[in-house]
Design a protein around this nucleic acid. Structure first.
Lengths: 342, 342
DNA sequence: CACATCCAGCTAAACGTTTAGCTATACTTG
DNA sequence: CAAGTATAGCTAAACGTTTAGCTGGATGTG
């Protein structure tokens, strides 16, 4: 591939003149400019971003590290992130830590070597402090969806407590009192927050859940499937379940299907998030949803601001509110009626 | 961030000695090696892949360009690609051409500037020839899923004709004779191949489809929704539909739902591919499926071979066979019986 | 005409790494 | 002891771009 020296030679000018024309960064006379442009076309020249990066210290790369790329939530996040990165003039390098803190460490190290300009990170576990350079200057970073003990990066999250509370309140409003839960991992702020929201809603109505109706596990379809079978195959099945994410909801659905249980006839289901695009399939999940598009766009706005202007005086923590979307996966309970003997 | 010069100065050696230790590329005495390693740890040194790339001409980046990242098929492909890239020691840069040839051109140009080592490309339209450098040497590339008139790159595809034929034969075997289709874009080898397979299956049984039962459109949920309503709201509705991809199947399902039609009671549906993970939702689609994991791994095997060893004597074209997966979205027709008047 | 001012275009260093080729020292051999 | 051989470690150029600072020529002024 042609370099700037080849173009300079072909046009009979210096490399500085070619750079000035290609980048439009200094006055170049019309005659010289025309010669340079002709040479650029003739040689099909494109500047090397590698060399440019070495000189300028800007890679035009943003890294995104998601927790589980097989999870449709995160793949939709990547889709939105690609569009946002492109809109800001960046390319997106995608990493999947697969919920493993050790993998996250290796990925962060790789990102430093790649000299990415910024990172959007879904933190795994509690360890996101290895991004600091030796001189204390870290790669501009925005944490997404989950919060860890890192007081330097901006964060974009959802009010997980509200997400859990709204979904649970919906079930309570329908008359459910024996409500179980598949909580997601409680060491994550997302899992913990949604669980806390559910517990707050129950306590506010004076409802005490049965401990064996509440199970936790990773945000994975297979995990939810197993855990759901344990809950559902018990002697006293709950009348409703709150599920902490969309992929777990699918696992729960598969368990219902395999056990011959109908939703919502035999059990009501509410979740936080669902899988996009499956509105035509039955049953449509009742759920609290992330405004994911707004969240991703905000994350990129904060990140690009950090890349351009450096760290703000104090880290920013933007919290979005979930929205309840009513589908058809919940039915009212028929309350037990104690007959009056006359 | 510390550079190799900082480490050299701290260790009291040359940069060549530091490079030899870090890369383990030449003998260094134990005493010097220990000093270098101590300095590396003390300064938290990580080599710059930008500078390394400029010198060596290897970026350790592979670009993947998908046609529609919002399509779950392509997002699953990206997920598998990230794992394959990581396994081969590469990072993955993700681009979405969104079915737009002009966007594809810009992306390819960007990939050249980034000096990615290789590309996995889902070509859009018929234009994938702008990857050649001026000296005729192109970035190692594997085309995925679709074939364009590019006789230089390897390709990994599915037998689309077989995919269409198998799904249609399944419907014919159930007694369906009024079979419609939502074909996908016919200028793509994928859309065209699946349509041809369907037509072959019908012709082999002496069945002539009604032209207004066959509609084409982009591989998008919204497109399929609109087109499906046109077919289904007509006076003589088909008894079955073959849909050319999983996302269109979801659009069709949504149209059925909105029109109050039950599947398979009112109409049977077969598709090529579905959305992963939704097996618990009703109805489970009967479909011909891509062995996507095998395909992605093969694509990366071919690409890494090209990166390492240069172009093979002749481009390779690996064709995978689809598999029919029977769900519950198809029912037998009750054949019309002409009563004998005695 | 001599001197001052302006500026288009050029030269060459730098970004951080790798590595070809050099050199001083150690060791071997006759 | 002199000559030959081996090699650890070093020097410095190169990868492709950007840009600070220089310079020769054009223009203006007294």
């Amino acid at each position: 591939m042609a370099t700037i020296r080849d173009v300079a030679k072909a046009a009979g000018v210096s490399t500085a003149t070619v750079s000035a024309v290609v980048n439009d960064s200094a006055y170049v006379s019309p005659e010289l400019r025309a010669r340079v442009e002709a040479a650029v076309r003739q040689l099909n020249y494109a500047p090397s971003m590698v060399a440019r990066n070495l000189k300028r210290g800007k890679s035009q790369l943003i890294a995104i590290v998601v927790a589980d790329l097989a999870n449709a939530f995160f793949s939709r996040m990547v889709c939105l992130a690609e569009a946002a990165a492109a809109a800001w003039g960046y390319s997106l390098v995608v990493f999947n830590s697969d919920e493993k803190p050790e993998a996250e460490k290796r990925i962060i190290s790789r990102i430093r070597m790649l000299s990415c300009d910024g990172i959007v990170l879904v933190p795994v576990g509690e360890t996101a402090q290895n991004m600091r350079d030796d001189d204390g200057k870290s790669i501009p970073t925005v944490l997404f969806g989950r919060i860890v003990d890192d007081r330097r990066s901006d964060t974009v999250t959802i009010d997980n407590v509200s997400a859990g509370r709204q979904a649970t309140n919906y079930l309570l409003d329908l008359g459910h009192r024996r409500i179980g839960s598949i909580t997601g991992p409680l060491q994550l702020t997302t899992g913990r927050g949604r669980h806390e929201g559910m517990m707050q809603a129950l306590q506010a109505r004076g409802v005490t859940p049965l401990p064996h109706h509440i199970r936790s596990g990773e945000f994975r379809e297979g995990t939810a499937y197993s855990v759901a079978r344990e809950i559902l195959e018990g002697d006293d099945r709950p009348s409703a379940l709150y599920v902490a994410n969309g992929v777990m909801a699918l696992g729960l659905m598969r368990a219902l299907s395999d056990l011959g249980l109908r939703c919502p006839e035999d059990i009501s289901i509410a979740s936080t998030d669902t899988i996009p695009g499956i509105g035509g399939l039955r049953p449509r999940l009742t759920r609290t949803e992330h405004p994911l598009s707004d969240m991703v766009n905000e994350a990129f706005r904060l990140l690009v601001d950090r890349i351009s202007n450096g760290a703000p005086p104090a880290p920013r923590n933007v919290v979005f509110q979930p929205a309840l979307v009513v589908g058809e996966s919940c039915a009212p309970t028929v309350p037990l009626v104690v007959e009056n003997h006359r």
